[in-house]
């Protein structure tokens, strides 16, 4: 995603990050379109909001390793296996840059991981869907990474310097992943009838969850909900969820045509007047249900992550003990 920041409407929303108390230097940088750097003055609420968003983004990268990791062992050719391993490795790398960006705000990666593991912090709801066939590797690359790019390109101009710079690198790699996903689906949709059916099924399952990645509607009557208004005022967010979602749909429909696959929305059609594609209603109750923990794989994703963390505790403790033995002078 994952650079979005939303929760279910009931109960899970963090305390509102009220503005006010904004140092003049901070406001001047924002007015100038400049970058806030870690040592600059910033309101506490801005710092807190960024920590939450960057941590959620980092968590999404590392949880996102699981649905694709699910197919490394079964990739259907050695070339595809290598590409998939490298892709999942890139996601671990994105997690690292993002945890490092969050740490510039005075938090610690270990604490952020604890908050992920005990449920205080979230990750993108999209990774709570299962990867049932090989074609899901294509659909995730094409749709999920495609949606992520639309979300993240504006974050390259986000007001917080370390986050913006991390996004520049992440976006380059995501763009590569998106083309890989497209290429997987292109091969399948031009392959055997069974491969073609596998590709269509994956697109049918991932289309609506991909649209939900942009978050609930936040324009028109919903404009006052969520964090959008405050995040836009602070230069963290540049466009509304709805604008970004529309951009993604407009970009994706012609690509689906090029693939020869259909998108599962009978109301999807070009609107000359708006200059955009119209689409059918999005069932946000499903999104909120998944965010609340009732998605198809929420428990499995967390159990996998917490299991890896706990199984590795003895290794991390040993590394620390070894380092401490080797550096007595540095400690003294």
């Amino acid at each position: 995603m994952y650079g979005n920041d939303f929760t279910a409407p009931d109960g899970l929303r963090p305390a509102p990050d009220a503005g006010g108390d904004e140092p003049a230097s901070f406001l001047a940088v924002l007015a100038d379109g400049g970058r806030i750097e870690p040592r600059d003055e910033m309101p506490e609420a801005y710092r807190r909001s960024l920590v939450r968003q960057i941590a959620q983004h980092a968590h999404s990268e590392i949880i996102g390793m699981q649905p694709e990791g699910n197919w490394i062992a079964r990739a259907p050719s050695l070339r595809r296996k290598g590409i998939l391993m490298a892709k999942v490795q890139d996601e671990a790398g994105h997690g690292l840059y993002l945890y490092a960006a969050a740490e510039t705000l005075g938090v610690d990666r270990a604490d952020l991981l604890d908050q992920l593991h005990d449920g205080r912090q979230k990750y993108s709801s999209i990774f709570n869907y299962p990867t049932l066939t090989w074609a899901d590797m294509g659909a995730i690359g094409w749709l999920v990474d495609g949606a992520a790019i639309v979300n993240q390109v504006p974050l390259c101009r986000c007001s917080f310097g370390p986050y913006a710079r991390a996004m520049v690198r992440v976006c380059k790699e995501e763009s590569f992943h998106q083309r890989q996903g497209f290429e997987i689906l292109h091969t399948l949709s031009h392959g055997t009838p069974a491969q073609r059916a596998m590709a269509q099924d994956a697109v049918d399952r991932y289309w609506w969850p991909s649209l939900m990645m942009f978050g609930p509607s936040d324009t028109g009557p919903d404009a006052a909900t969520g964090h959008t208004a405050q995040s836009m005022a602070w230069g963290i967010k540049r466009f509304s969820n709805d604008e970004l979602r529309q951009r993604f749909i407009d970009m994706t429909v012609p690509q689906a045509e090029a693939l020869g696959l259909t998108l599962p929305d009978p109301e999807l059609r070009w609107n000359d007047e708006r200059g955009h594609y119209d689409h059918g209603p999005i069932d946000f109750t499903e999104l909120f249900d998944v965010i609340k923990g009732n998605g198809p794989c929420n428990q499995e994703r967390m159990a996998h992550r917490v299991g890896a963390h706990e199984d590795g505790a003895w290794v991390r403790e040993a590394a620390e003990a070894y380092a401490a033995k080797r550096a007595p002078e540095a400690v003294a």
Binding site: I62, M65, Q66, G69, I72, A73, L78, K81, G82, M85, A86, V88, Q89, A92, G93, G95, L96, Y99, H304, G307, A308, D311, G312, A313, V315, R316
Partner: peptide, 24 residues
């Protein structure tokens, strides 16, 4: 490849993926 997403720390996920890719 089994280790990717299961390593004791994130740096090790990267390292083991690298090693797996070399071997592949």
């Amino acid at each position: 490849g089994w280790w990717i997403s299961r390593a004791p720390q994130l740096e090790e996920d990267l390292a083991l993926a690298n090693i797996g890719l070399d071997l592949l």
